[in-house]
Structures are given as structure tokens and as C-alpha cells.
Design a binder for these strands. Structure first.
Lengths: 224, 224
DNA sequence: TACTGTTCTTGAACACGTTCAAAATAGGTT
DNA sequence: AACCTATTTTGAACGTGTTCAAGAACAGTA
């Protein structure tokens, strides 16, 4: 029934966890520390959050909700495909900047389809779908129009591209993450160029092959 | 100094571990079970292997050594680029088939650069480099010759492609992993086509962009 | 107020991976 | 043999995430 007081306790625990994750890192923070910092018993933390990773998940959900406002604003303003994509990326990088390091705790399971924290998992489906809509919106009405056969796959491909960029960012040890910024600019320009070339008649056979391959991969939802 | 008897104990522990991983899965197997199955005390397992994951690592090392013989044979026989790549892939898939499921324990950390088990980590560098040489060999003397600017990056790109394929395979729930086989065939054909097109004059600007991007990514070894 | 069911809180206990000091064994040297 | 050092083996103990039975606080109802 989630009473007012309970809601307050829950958010106190989450806040304590995030504080500790930020200052000490995910692995170095114990559930006992979190509980103690939030002035509750160990068991209480588990009453509100199924696991230590669920705390990161709660953060991710909150982040996604807060970013959606900014992303919508950014998309409304930006015109071309590249500035729209750039708008989405900018919001995410800016938002996550203070948490870049412990965000790794979330994305290190990216390759593990069983893990509920994976960005591909069922648990994260609603967040992912919200993102997909933004990428679809970024593509909407962009010139030249995308080839009909490829178009349905583009939001997911762009989402994947963005995921890769974030993953790179998280493990980027260069000062001030300079390399990520370089990669972002170059890859963005490459993506836009490639999409412009996509409708080029000479490349039709190649595109057909790509579409076929995407069909195979998408066949069924790959993860339970 | 690794006495004969010690060597025997070590391999008994490793064998027990692999048996249990295969039958019960990685997470479900405990170090106590492994030790007991190998008729040693718990501590002995840790005398020979630094961690539970080191056991998987030892398997991976052994696998890499055993496969290298078969891969060299396959490469010597096959002529075209596509049949050479296919030869490498075939050896790996065939070798790993019985261990497909628990291999996930190794690759689920693929996205975590800190993890020594990650295929990108320093720990796995020598295995990776051996693989890179095979992909370089597969490219060697293939017609048409690869563009000079792109060529240095191709072994690593193919290695990455292969990694992705294996990752897909591991989480492929379709009967008999039919989808992986489809994906392998289609993607292989796509890769070969793309490489053939790579030297195409009209695509030069696109290729230049790609090479620049690869330079940025490769800048320095991304993981400690 | 007294009773009742639900929500919330507690901390002991569990299972696991891992560490470590101490004991046992082996191999070499006098 | 007796002794010494290095290697190997042992199992208790630790810290961690997680579970759970028991109780406390609360909200509604008579």
C-alpha cells in the first residue's frame, strides 16, 4: 500500500546508496553500509530493493524519466538528423557525467543476456522502448527519406550505436574523456553519411544483404 | 617448482571443475563441490587457481592451444577469404559446442573492461593476439588486395566480428542454434562483399571516415 | 478502547567466494 | 638418519549479498 512514510524510507535508502556508490564505487560499497547510512536495518534495504543491483536499476529508471523531458526539448529544437542525434547524445552524456564511473556497474553486464540489469533484458524493456521512440523521432522526416526496407531497423541500430558509445565512454581513461568526444563526432558524421548513401542505387545489393541479416537477428526477441 | 604430483592435482581440480560446470552450470557450481569432487580441501583449489573464474580462464587457454592446431590446418587448406574465415569460425564453433552454455560465464563479462576474464582484458591478451594472427593470415594475399589505409585494422575488426558471432551463439535459444548458422552465413557473405567494395573509388570518402574513426578508437590500448 | 489484519522493521543465520596461519609432506644436504 | 627448506594441503574464519521468521508499528473497525 506504500504509505507516505514508507516512500520516504525507500528514497532515503536509494539516496544513501547512490551517495556511497558515487564516492566509493559500486563494488566497494556494502549493503550494510547503505543500510547504516540510511539509518535502517539491513533487512529493510531488502524490503524495498530486491538486490544491490536493483538500486542501480532504480537509479537508471529515475534517470531515464528525468532525461526524457530534456530529450524531448532537444528534439523539438534541433532540425537535421545529425543535430537531433547529437541532442539525444548530449543529454545522456551530460546527465550521466557525474556517475560515469559507477554506471559501469550497470553496463558491465551488457553482454550477459540473462542478467536483468543488461540493457537488452526484459527488465529494462520499457526504458529501452522509450529510447527507441526518441531515435525514431530523430529519424522522422529527415531528408533524404530512408529506404523503406531499412527504415524499420534504424531506431534499434541507432540505439545500439548509442549504447556502444556510452560503453566506450565508461571505460575511456583519456583525460577528460577526450577520446569519447572525438569518437562521438567522427562516428556521428559517419552514421549520417552512411544513411545518406543508403538509398544510393549502386549500393542496393549491399543494402539488401544488410536488411536480410537484420531480419535474421531480429527474428524473435533474443532474450527472455 | 611444480612437481609431477602437483601437476596431476592441478589437472584433477580443473577436470572436476569443468565436469561440474558442464553438468550444473557455472553459477550453480560451488568451489566446495569442485574441491570435494577432486578429493582435495577447499584451500587446495585456491592454491592452484586464483579464483573460480580462473578455472574458466584455464579452460579457455587450453581450448585456444588445442584449436590453434586445427585452425592452422584449416587455413592451409582453404583458399578464398570467405572459406578461410569460415574455417576459423568452424573450428571454434565445433570445439566449443559442448560447452556453449557455460562459456557464457566467460563472455558475460565481455563488456566489463576491468574484468580479467573479458576478451578485451590484459589477462587474455596472448590468446587474443594468437587469434589476430589467424585473421591476418586469412586476409593474406586475398584478392583484391585490401586498401593500404584500412588493412592494418582488418584483423582486429574480423576478430571483433567473430566475437560478436560467438556472443550471439551463446545466447541463441533457437532449436539447434539455427539462427546463429543463418547469421554466420549471411554476415560472412556481407563481410566479404563489404571488403570487396572497400577499394571502390566512389566509396573512398566513406572509407577515409571509417579509417579516421578506427584511429581514434585504437589511439591507445583501451584497457589496463 | 480493544481487536485484527496489513505493512514495515529487525537482526540473526545462511551460502558462497576467498584468505590465511598452521600443519603435513617431499626433496635435498650433511 | 637427522635436519632443513620449499612445496603442498588443510580447514577454520572472514566478509559479502541475501533470506527469513519474528516482532513492532500502523490503520481500520467494532
Amino acid at each position: 500500500m506504500a504509505s507516505k512514510k514508507a516512500e520516504e524510507t525507500r528514497s532515503r535508502i536509494l539516496r544513501a546508496a547512490l551517495d556511497l556508490f558515487r564516492s566509493r564505487g559500486f563494488d566497494e560499497t556494502t549493503m550494510r553500509e547503505i543500510a547504516s547510512e540510511a539509518s535502517v536495518a539491513l533487512g529493510a534495504a531488502y524490503y524495498y530493493f530486491a538486490s544491490k543491483e536493483a538500486l542501480v536499476m532504480a537509479f537508471y529508471e529515475q534517470a531515464s524519466a528525468e532525461m526524457s523531458v530534456k530529450i524531448e526539448a532537444g528534439l523539438a529544437e534541433a532540425k537535421g538528423l545529425d543535430s537531433r542525434l547529437r541532442a539525444i547524445l548530449d543529454v545522456k552524456f551530460e546527465y550521466f557525467a557525474p556517475d560515469r564511473l559507477f554506471l559501469g556497474a550497470l553496463l558491465r553486464h551488457a553482454a550477459d543476456p540473462e542478467n536483468p540489469l543488461s540493457p537488452f533484458s526484459g527488465q529494462t524493456a520499457h526504458i529501452r522502448e522509450r529510447d527507441l521512440r526518441y531515435f525514431a523521432a530523430a529519424l522522422e522526416g529527415s531528408r533524404p527519406a530512408m529506404p523503406k526496407d531499412l527504415a524499420p531497423y534504424l531506431p534499434k541500430l541507432l540505439w545500439l550505436y548509442q549504447m556502444g558509445l556510452i560503453l566506450f565512454w565508461i571505460s575511456d581513461r583519456s583525460p577528460d574523456q577526450r577520446r569519447t568526444r572525438q569518437l562521438r563526432d567522427k562516428s556521428l558524421s559517419l552514421v549520417v553519411t552512411a544513411l545518406k548513401l543508403a538509398g544510393f542505387p549502386l549500393l542496393r545489393p549491399l543494402r539488401k544483404k544488410i536488411v536480410e541479416l537484420l531480419m535474421t537477428v531480429e527474428g524473435e526477441p533474443e532474450h527472455a
